[in-house]
Simulated assay, not measured.
Amino acid sequence: MIADILSRLPVKSLLRFKSVCKSWHCMITDSSLGFQALHYDRSQRKPRFLLQWPDFDFRPLEPAGCRYVYNFISIDTEGNMISPIQVKVQEPVKLILPGCYGLVCLATETRIHVFNPSTRHLIALPTDRGEIAGFGIGYLSSAKGHVIVRLNIPRQSRTSLSWKLECSVFTFLPENGGPKWRAVKDGCPYLVEQFSFPAFANETIYWKIDRGKHQALHRHNDFIVSFKISDEKFQTITHPTDWRPETHRQWRSPVRNSTQLVELRGHLYMVETAAFSYVAVWKLTDPGNSMWSKACTIDISKFHPSFVGELQCVKGTEIIFNSFTHLLLYYDEENKTSRKKILPCSAANLTIYCESLTFPATQHV
């Protein structure tokens, strides 16, 4: 009964309640007891957004070596502010991945930071040799732990794009002297879009292939590379339609606009915005055979182009998009209606996450 009640509370309250008694401390902090999983399961019904302010503070004389201070606010799906959040890193952040089981990844040129917006824990993963060609975060339920996957361009293939990308996996468990990157035997078959958003669904990380750098694919409509973290195997998935490029310029995107990979309702979805006239949403029903089903098509011709950005999440029957302005756009699939919500700064700097107590490190922001 106590666990059921406490699992409905926000993380901020639970961090204070750890001090009530030893039994509560053990229940809240021990992931093996199942409380953290129960809490996260309920948190998924109330996702949150990290909204990044458009500027940051540059502090070259920071004593601890943290030169960049990024300010965020946490908001709910209706745009209401919950709390401010500050993150300090040593390099400019180039990409922030959507949350995975409560954690988000912040990528710089040379390293990956793992951050829990709820507990304020932050860790910078140790650097590894080679240029980062892509990365992703996943969660392995059998091990009750996160997996960070990094793709590197092999040194001997910097001038040859025919080589596979090297793959390494980061484990937070002490092995052979401490946490480290572990090489995976099989390499990634294609270059992936380096700083585009991968998606995680069904214990698999999905990246878009960088088609602009591949004029010869194994299959003409190969579009996605997947990595199943349980067996550490790569696979390629074709585009939902039998698309063939007519010219070299069409290799990068079959819709000549935006194509997004996103996890919705526990599955991988592909979202295509075509010439600001419609949004097509596809669901991957059979990854092994590259089978897709059309989830819906949304007519956006009546919206201003800057109103429709990336799809963020689903709330009931509503699909929530960010924008290139100060707006969130809500589209109701059943009623075919839309509404807008004004935000304090640009919605383009938006990252979704769910509250979680999970974190493998002890460093606080």
Rank of each mutant, 00 (worst) to 15 (best):
Y68R: 01
P63G: 06
R59V: 09
R59Y: 01
D57G: 04
M81A: 11
W53Y: 14
F72R: 01
L50K: 02
I73E: 06
F72D: 08
Q52N: 05
P63Q: 07
L51F: 09
P60W: 15
F58L: 13
F58E: 08
P63T: 00
N71M: 09
Q52V: 04
I75V: 15
N80V: 05
L50D: 08
E62R: 10
R67F: 09
P54L: 13
D55Y: 11
N80L: 03
T77N: 07
P63I: 03
F72A: 04
Y70G: 00
P60R: 15
P54M: 11
D57N: 02
S74I: 15
L61A: 12
S74N: 04
E62H: 14
Y70K: 01
T77S: 10
I75D: 00
P60I: 14
Y70R: 02
Q52G: 06
G65S: 10
D76G: 09
S74Q: 11
L50I: 04
F72G: 05
E78A: 09
P63Y: 07
P60M: 15
F72S: 04
Y68S: 03
E62C: 13
A64H: 11
L50H: 05
L51R: 11
W53R: 11
Y70L: 11
R67S: 04
D57M: 13
E78T: 06
G79P: 04
C66G: 03
I75A: 13
V69Y: 07
W53S: 05
M81W: 00
I73Y: 01
I75T: 15
G65R: 12
F58A: 10
N80H: 08
F56V: 05
E62M: 06
L61C: 11
F58Q: 08
Y68L: 05
G79I: 07
E62F: 06
F56L: 13
D76H: 10
I73F: 02
Y68E: 01
G65F: 09
G65E: 10
Y68I: 13
G65Q: 10
L61T: 13
F56A: 06
P54R: 13
R67N: 05
P54G: 09
A64V: 02
G65M: 11
R67D: 00
L51P: 08
Y70D: 01
P60E: 15
E62K: 08
N71K: 11
E78R: 12
A64C: 10
L51M: 12
L61Q: 12
G79D: 00
D57Y: 14
I75R: 08
Y68D: 01
L61R: 12
M81G: 01
N71Y: 11
S74M: 09
F56H: 13
R59M: 12
P60L: 15
Y70I: 07
F72H: 07
A64M: 11
Q52R: 15
R59P: 00
E62A: 15
Q52L: 14
V69Q: 14
L50T: 06
C66K: 14
D55V: 14
R59C: 11
D76I: 02
D55T: 15
N71I: 04
N71P: 00
M81R: 08
Y68M: 05
E78C: 07
P63L: 03
W53Q: 12
E78W: 01
I73G: 02
E78Q: 10
L61D: 14
L50C: 06
G65C: 07
F72C: 05
E62V: 00
E78D: 11
I73C: 07
N71S: 13
C66F: 09
Y68A: 01
P63R: 05
W53H: 13
R59S: 13
A64R: 14
L61W: 12
G65K: 04
D76T: 07
T77E: 08
